[in-house]
């Protein structure tokens, strides 16, 4: 099935949820959902026998950097407002089709329901999204940092306004 057919099926099934397709000039098209309806859509695409997406390939977190850019007291760039986005890429081993789903959350208080009870591969991907971007997943049994040290308290590294700290436990970081 193409993405257009999958989108039509979902739109007919859930009439009161706002979803739409987006595509830029080059590249692929993807379905955009709001975070409240995310869990319902994910459950549907996994359990529906015509769709049967049983293989979660990747969850990516992106800093959209579409808020206001201000300068703080040291002259460093700070972004206020705007969104952070999550992209889910899924594939179906029985029907041989794939799909991409996007949600956007607030930058100040990002929270999204977890997908770990549907696909176990979401476990480490969600921990990495939390570690690098700061997005909290509600219902995750073990949401800790995974790549950075456990006592790293200097922020979330992949945000666009991240400033490299000077020292970490007496080790000098800059060159």
């Amino acid at each position: 099935m193409t993405i257009k057919e999958i989108f039509d099926l979902l739109k007919n099934r859930f009439e009161n949820i706002k979803i739409y397709i987006e595509k830029f000039e080059v590249g692929e098209e993807y379905i955009v959902v709001s975070p409240d309806a995310l869990k319902q859509i994910l459950q549907e695409i996994r359990n529906n026998p015509r769709l049967h997406f049983d293989y979660l390939m990747c969850i990516s977190s992106v800093d959209d950097a579409n808020g206001e850019i201000k300068k703080d007291e040291n002259g460093n760039k700070i972004i206020k407002g705007g969104t952070l986005s999550l992209y889910y890429h899924l594939y179906s081993t029985t029907r041989n089709h794939k799909i991409a789903i996007k949600t956007s959350v607030d930058r100040e208080n990002p929270a999204v329901p977890t997908a770990i009870d549907l696909w176990k591969s979401a476990d480490w991907h969600e921990r990495e999204a939390f570690d690098m971007m700061g997005i909290k997943f509600e219902g995750h049994p073990n949401l800790k940092r995974i790549l950075m040290p456990y006592d790293w308290n200097a922020g979330f590294p992949l945000r666009k306004d991240f400033i490299t700290p000077e020292y970490y436990n007496d080790l000098k970081i800059p060159y």
């Binding site: 950075m148 590294p157 991240f162 490299t164 700290p165 080790l171 970081i173 800059p174 060159y175």
Partner: peptide
């Protein structure tokens, strides 16, 4: 240059 986790 941009390694925030690399000891130089």
């Amino acid at each position: 240059q941009h390694g925030y986790h690399v000891l130089k």
